[in-house]
């Protein structure tokens, strides 16, 4: 029984590493920054998540730290990619020529967070 779980875990680890590789490939192939963020950070989130989940199936005694790492990655990774995309758009990193629409007004970026910090 434990053996089957170990093999499933190993296959999940392999799948996760393939997703990590695809994310890195997307990072190299995509034409502009925003598409690189799309392909890179999110495939790497799923890849790392699957790898750690596979490790969890292989070594169940380590569940505490592995679960902590998985939740940590799932929470922090979208935040960092969002902040990065916003900063890049603010400093006018150009979008690729294939872009069809850009509805975000560049002059009017929200600065609510900054106001809250000032008021405190």
């Amino acid at each position: 029984m434990g053996n089957i779980l170990e093999i499933i875990g190993a296959v999940l680890v392999l799948l996760g590493s393939v997703f990590l590789f695809l994310g890195a490939l997307g990072l190299v192939r995509m034409p502009d920054l925003y598409n690189r963020i799309q392909a890179g950070t999110k495939a790497s989130t799923l890849g790392t998540f699957l790898t750690l989940f596979g490790l969890l199936l292989i070594i169940p005694e380590w569940w505490g730290k592995l679960v902590l790492l998985m939740t940590f990655i799932l929470i922090t990774n979208p935040v960092s990619s969002h902040v990065l995309a916003r900063a890049a758009h603010y400093i006018k990193i150009p979008l690729t020529d294939k872009t069809v629409a850009d509805l975000l007004n560049k002059e009017k970026t929200t600065y609510k967070v900054n106001e809250e910090i000032k008021n405190e």
């Binding site: 996760g16 590493s17 990590l20 994310g23 890195a24 990072l27 920054l33 690189r36 963020i37 890179g40 950070t41 790497s44 989130t45 890849g47 790392t48 790898t51 750690l52 790492l69 990655i73 990774n77 960092s80 990619s81 990065l84 900063a87 890049a88 400093i91 990193i93």
Partner: peptide, 18 residues
């Protein structure tokens, strides 16, 4: 550009977590 390097850094560190 510099943000490109930052994206690469992000993906690199998350991959090295695995």
């Amino acid at each position: 550009t510099a943000p490109d390097r930052l994206v690469a850094f992000d993906v690199m560190t998350v991959s090295s977590l695995a």
